[in-house]
Design a protein around this nucleic acid. Structure first.
Length: 607
RNA sequence: GGGAUCGUAGCUCAGUUUGGUUAGAGCGCCUGCCUGUCACGCAGGAGGUCGCGGGUUCGAGCCCCGUCGGUCCCGCCA
C-alpha cells in the first residue's frame, strides 16, 4: 500500500499529468465490464475520468471494480497515463487519459436510485424535489449553484470595494399593513402577539441610513405569503441596497456597475450606462412596465382615426376618453388562421377588452393590394383603411390587430397579446439581451376594490418635488422618484429615493388612507427616526433568484434555489409544512380552526 | 378563489379515440458470457393496487362523479 497523497480533482488532470501519481475521490458515474477489463468513470464536481482495471495486472483492484455500481463512492490512486491511440474518447475532456489505480477504496455503496441522474432533466419535478440531494448531484444543477455563488460573490466584492457595509436585519419582525400577506410567527413570551417574517428589510435599511451607515447592503431573505409561480417562491433572496446623501443618478450608476459585473459571470455582456425609458413611454409603446424589447411589435395609436370614422364602437371609445390602438404583424396578412384570430380575441378579452379587430393588408393573385377585415371594412372608407395602415405602420402583406378601450385595458390587452404573438410566431431573438431602466412611475394607483389610492411602489417612496402640490388634488398625476430595472421582459428589481422628512411622509400616508393614529402604530419608529436628522437617502433591491435563473438559462427559480417549494408551498424533501404537537400549540397559546379533514393529506403526499 | 394540463413497472412513455382473453416498449435493476469499452455488446430474468375513493356496466387503465398530488397561467404578489 502506498501512502495517501493529496486529493486531485478531475478538471486538474490533463496531458501535463501523464506519469504523475494522483488520488481522486468521487462517485462511480458508469461501469463498463468487458469480462476481463473493467472500466469505471469516476465523477467529482469538476468532471469525469476513466479508471481501468485488468485482472492480470492487479487482481485486487479488479475485484473491487467488479463490485462497484452506479453512484458508489470511491477513492482511487494511481498514475495518469495516455490511452492507446485507438481508444480515445473525444466526447470526454479527459478522453485521452486514464488511470489503472494501484489502490481503490470503496468508501460507500449506494442503493438503487429512484431515478437515473442523467435522465433527471426529464423526470417529473416532484421526484427531483423529493430526492433533492440526488438532483443536486447532477452536473447541470452543480453548475447552477456554483454560478449563483459566483454572482453573489461578485456583487459582494463590488460593493465592498465601494465602501458598502453588509448588515443583517431581523427575520422576526413586525407585521406591516401594506403590501403582500405576511407570514406570522406566534410569540411564546408574549402570548397572543405575533412576529411577522420580513417582506423585505425596507424599514430597517432606512433606519440604518438615519443611523449614519451611509452605504448598506445585504443578501437578504424575504418572505411573502402569496401564491407561487415559476419565478415566485414564498421565500426568496434579494440583494438589498441603500445609500445616503445621494440622488437617482447615484443609485442607477452604482447598480449598473455591479449588475454588469454580475451578468458577466453568466457570460452576458451588458453595455452600460443602460438606456432609460419613462413609465409612460413603455406603457404607450409596449403596454407593459417590463416590456421585452428583444422584438418590435410596437403599439401604435389609432384613436385620431377612430374618433372620426363611422364605426360606432370606435367613436364611443374615443369620445369617452378611451383609446384605439394596434400592433402590426409583419408579413402575416395571409398566415394567420381565423381560428388563431379567434383565440387571440378570447385572449384579449381576459384583459377586459371587448374584442379584437383585425385588418389584413394582403394581395390578390395579380399582386394588387387586397384588404380583408372582420367587420371594420364595413364602416371605414377605403381612405380610412389606408390611413389606418399608415398610422399602424403596416406595409402590404402585414396584419394589424386592433383593441379599443380604456387606457389600462388597451395597454394590458395589447401588452400581453404582443408577448403571446411573439412567442407563438417565434419573433423573439434569443441571442439579444435588452436591459434598461424604467423611470417616472406614478406614485399611486387607484384600487377599485378598496376604493382608494395605494402606493404603486411603497409608501416610503419620495414624490418628485415638482409634483408635490398635486398630492392632495390630483394624486394620479404625482410621479414617484422610483425606478425599475428590466431584463428581457423580466423585472429584476426596483427602488426609489425615499421620503426623509416627517411632513411629506405624513402627507403620503394620509393620501393612501393611513391616518396619524394608524401611521404611529404601524411605522411609529420610522416617523420618529425621520425627525432625528434623517439624511436624504434611497436604494434598490434586486431578485437574486431571477438574475441567476436568467443567467443559468433555467425556466424556473426552483432550479437555482437549493431547496425550493412546490406551487402549493410544500417542501417535498422535508414534508414541511407539517403538524405540530398539541403541546407545542398550547405553549404558544395558539389553536387551529382546522379540524380533522387534513388527515388524508398527511399520508398521501408525493410518490 | 378560478382556468388549463398531467398521474400506467424504479424512471420516461405507449395503450384511453371505439370498454372485452394474460397491460406493453425503452432505460435502469438482477444473473450469466465477453480483455479497449465509453449510450459497451450478447443471452436470460425479476419487476404493475394503471394516484386514491365511489359510480355506470355482464365486464373499467379506458366512461361518469369526487378527491389527492405535480406543473403552467389568471386573480394575488406595495
Amino acid at each position: 500500500m502506498n501512502k495517501k497523497i493529496p486529493r486531485s480533482y478531475c478538471e486538474q488532470i490533463n496531458s501535463q499529468s501523464v506519469g504523475q501519481q494522483v488520488r481522486l475521490c468521487g462517485w462511480v458515474h458508469v461501469r463498463r465490464d468487458l469480462g476481463g477489463l473493467v472500466f469505471i468513470e469516476l465523477r467529482d464536481h469538476t468532471g469525469r475520468i476513466q479508471l481501468a482495471a485488468d485482472p492480470k495486472r492487479n487482481p485486487a483492484v479488479h475485484d473491487v471494480f467488479l463490485s462497484l455500481r452506479s453512484e458508489y463512492v470511491i477513492a482511487a490512486q494511481g498514475i495518469v497515463q495516455k490511452r492507446p491511440a485507438d481508444s480515445v474518447n473525444a466526447n470526454l475532456k479527459t478522453g485521452e487519459l486514464e488511470i489503472y489505480p494501484e489502490t481503490v477504496e470503496l468508501l460507500n455503496t449506494c442503493q438503487n436510485l429512484p431515478f437515473q441522474l442523467d435522465e433527471a432533466a426529464q423526470v417529473d419535478e416532484s421526484f427531483r424535489l423529493k430526492y433533492r440531494y440526488l438532483d443536486l448531484r447532477r452536473p447541470e444543477m452543480q453548475a447552477n449553484f456554483r454560478l449563483r455563488h459566483k454572482v453573489i460573490a461578485t456583487i459582494r466584492e463590488h460593493l465592498n470595494a465601494q465602501n458598502f457595509t453588509e448588515i443583517e436585519t431581523p427575520i422576526l419582525t413586525k407585521a406591516t399593513p401594506e403590501g403582500a400577506r405576511d407570514f406570522l410567527v406566534p410569540s411564546r413570551l408574549n402570548a397572543g402577539l405575533w412576529y411577522a417574517l420580513p417582506q423585505s428589510p425596507q424599514l430597517f435599511k432606512q433606519t440604518l441610513m438615519i443611523s449614519g451607515f451611509d452605504r448598506y447592503y445585504q443578501i437578504a431573505r424575504c418572505f411573502r405569503d402569496e401564491d407561487l409561480r415559476a419565478d415566485r417562491q414564498p421565500e426568496f433572496t434579494q440583494i438589498d441596497i441603500e445609500m445616503s446623501f445621494i440622488e437617482e443618478e447615484d443609485i442607477l450608476s452604482t447598480t449598473e456597475s455591479w449588475l454588469a459585473a454580475a451578468f458577466k459571470c453568466g457570460g452576458v455582456d451588458i453595455p452600460i450606462p443602460l438606456p432609460r425609458y419613462t413609465f409612460k413611454e413603455v406603457m404607450d409603446r409596449f403596454g407593459s412596465d417590463k416590456p421585452d424589447m428583444r422584438f418590435d411589435l410596437e403599439i401604435k395609436d389609432l384613436t385620431k382615426l377612430a374618433a372620426k370614422c363611422q364605426f360606432k364602437v370606435f367613436q364611443e371609445v374615443a369620445a369617452s376618453g378611451g383609446f384605439v390602438r394596434g400592433i402590426t404583424l409583419p408579413g402575416k396578412a395571409n398566415d394567420v388562421s381565423r381560428r388563431t384570430l379567434d383565440e387571440w380575441r378570447d385572449f384579449v378579452k381576459l384583459s377586459g377588452a371587448q374584442g379584437l379587430m383585425w385588418v389584413a393588408y394582403g394581395q390578390d393573385v395579380d399582386g394588387k393590394p387586397q384588404i380583408r377585415s372582420a367587420g371594420l371594412d364595413k364602416y371605414l372608407s377605403a381612405e380610412e383603411m389606408c390611413e389606418l395602415q399608415t398610422l399602424a405602420g403596416a406595409k402590404t402583406g402585414d396584419l394589424v390587430l386592433v383593441v379599443a378601450g380604456t387606457y389600462s385595458v388597451v395597454c394590458q390587452a395589447l401588452g400581453r397579446l404582443r408577448l403571446k404573438v411573439a412567442e407563438e410566431l417565434n419573433l423573439i431573438d434569443h441571442s439579444k439581451n435588452k436591459m434598461f431602466w424604467v423611470l417616472d412611475f406614478p406614485m399611486f394607483e387607484y384600487d377599485k376594490e378598496e376604493k382608494k389610492y395605494v402606493a404603486m411602489h411603497h409608501p416610503f417612496t419620495a414624490p418628485r418635488p415638482e409634483d408635490l402640490p398635486l398630492l392632495e388634488t390630483e394624486p394620479e398625476k404625482v410621479r414617484a422618484r422610483a425606478y425599475d430595472v428590466v431584463f428581457n421582459g423580466v423585472e429584476l428589481g426596483s427602488g426609489s429615493i425615499r421620503i426623509h422628512d416627517q411632513e411629506t411622509q405624513s402627507r403620503v400616508f394620509n393620501r393612501i388612507g393611513i391616518d396619524q393614529q394608524a401611521a404611529k402604530e404601524k411605522f411609529g419608529f420610522l416617523l420618529d427616526a425621520l425627525a432625528t436628522g434623517a439624511p436624504p437617502h434611497g436604494g434598490i433591491a434586486l431578485g437574486i433568484d431571477r438574475i441567476v435563473m436568467l443567467l443559468a438559462g433555467a425556466k424556473s427559480i426552483r432550479d437555482v434555489i437549493a431547496f425550493p417549494k412546490t406551487q402549493s408551498g410544500t417542501c417535498l424533501l422535508t414534508d414541511a409544512p407539517s403538524k405540530v404537537s398539541p403541546q407545542q400549540l398550547a405553549e404558544l397559546k395558539v389553536g387551529s380552526l382546522v379540524k380533522e379533514k387534513q388527515e388524508s393529506k398527511e399520508i398521501q403526499k408525493v410518490p
